[in-house]
Design a protein around this nucleic acid. Structure first.
Lengths: 225, 225
DNA sequence: CCCCATCCTGACCATATGGTCAAAAACAAA
DNA sequence: TTTGTTTTTGACCATATGGTCAGGATGGGG
């Protein structure tokens, strides 16, 4: 009976309830925006009485903050693939794949994030100024190194990053528009694959990316434009 | 005295009032979303009593619908540059320039549009299904012709369009994030120019675009990949 | 078995909001 | 000036919403 490691400790159940509420909240916030979302609707989606939400999250804003925070952390984690790569083809390719996958599997989170930023980031401004700024600076350094190594053309790293964010997140934030233009159907597996390939192809070609493998041989040979 | 052509006819004043309200509404909707916007705040921004808004626009939703509609029409008009071009370098280049300029001058409109689409287009779904679908199909045909003429690589036109929308609108929808990452300052003239150049360079290079001028000479010579 | 902390919830409250309305003001036409 | 129409607006209403609270249920530890 007790071979199962403490199935329902107090902390566990609390964590489960919080998670349930957070998931419902993410759905509702993503579908209606912060202003349009109601605690009642979130409660209905979670299958809990409204007062129960307020037991775990004292205010609507605190709940919203948690949702946005969680999304941001997931986003950061997925961005790690950037580092474990020797060159832009591998690094950016993996990054695009990872972000496209997120856009496909969790479009709600992306929408909440987009909405938050569009509204002047009222609750996560500090994240933008600290964590995101640091992360961005780090990635810019990586890209600049790739440029120096002749692995890609000299493009403004900042705008390249914006382009990566824009294109990948577009498939989440505007999925409704994309579906409508697709005859009302969600993208098929093949179509998602095509989307990934298109994005990777255009961007990697657009920056003149060279596989890191060939770098060892050529070294700085193709440094000049 | 009457050399001025009927300065204040009834219709004129009505149009002016409507315009004033629509502009205020665009600001507020863009800053707070449909759900977060209040008629009272729109009225304050417009400098009119709230009841007056309801004289011109019976409901909040009708006002919102007008705002979105106007934005969409502006967007369509700007997209015409696409047609008056012989090849991708000129056509897509001009299109990117035009959309970047809109993102810079009227980020509010772009945000309202993004918000509307993110929320499943509750009020302009019909536009997506009719006008936007037709416009998209037309542009896809143009791009396919360019590909046939060997003016660019064979890329999926649909995903290319999404990429154009995503990258250009990103500078409007996420302008707050971009400003934060820019040290809290808006992009300077030079930075906007750099953004435009980066986007154009990467995309045009990414699709292997060739100036139409060289097409007359080479014709289909470089058709194969 | 009892106790106490944690958890749950129906009922309730204060406020904000979209929208209405009747009366006044403005104004063009006669 | 008079008249009829359009426009303006303060006061008002019904409702929805975020949040509170007191009392009850639950369940682990003694």
């Amino acid at each position: 009976m007790n071979d199962e490691a403490r199935p329902n400790s107090r902390k566990d159940r609390r964590r489960e309830s919080e998670k349930l509420i957070l998931q419902a909240a993410e759905k509702v916030f993503s579908a209606a925006g912060f202003g349009g979302a109601t605690m009642q609707l979130i409660a209905d989606v979670a299958g809990l009485p409204k007062a129960n939400l307020h037991y775990y999250f004292p205010t609507k804003e605190s709940l919203y903050r948690q949702v946005v925070q969680t999304i941001f952390l997931d986003w950061l984690k997925a961005a790690d693939v950037f580092d474990h790569a020797d060159g832009p083809v591998e690094g950016l390719g993996a990054y695009i794949d990872a972000k496209m996958e997120i856009s496909r599997r969790h479009p709600e989170g992306s929408k909440v994030w987009a909405s938050e930023v569009m509204h002047q980031a009222p609750v996560i401004q500090d994240y933008l100024e600290t964590t995101l700024t640091e992360w961005t600076d780090g990635r810019i350094a990586v890209i600049e190194r790739w440029i120096e190594q002749g692995l890609m053309d000299p493009v403004d790293p900042r705008h390249l990053l914006y382009m990566l964010w824009a294109t990948t997140q577009h498939y989440a934030d505007f999925n409704h528009q994309i579906e409508t233009l697709n005859g009302g159907d969600p993208l098929s597996d093949a179509q998602w694959e095509a989307a990934k390939q298109s994005v990777k192809q255009i961007i990697l070609r657009g920056i003149g990316a060279v596989p890191a493998a060939s770098a060892g041989e050529l070294d700085g040979a193709n440094r000049a434009r």
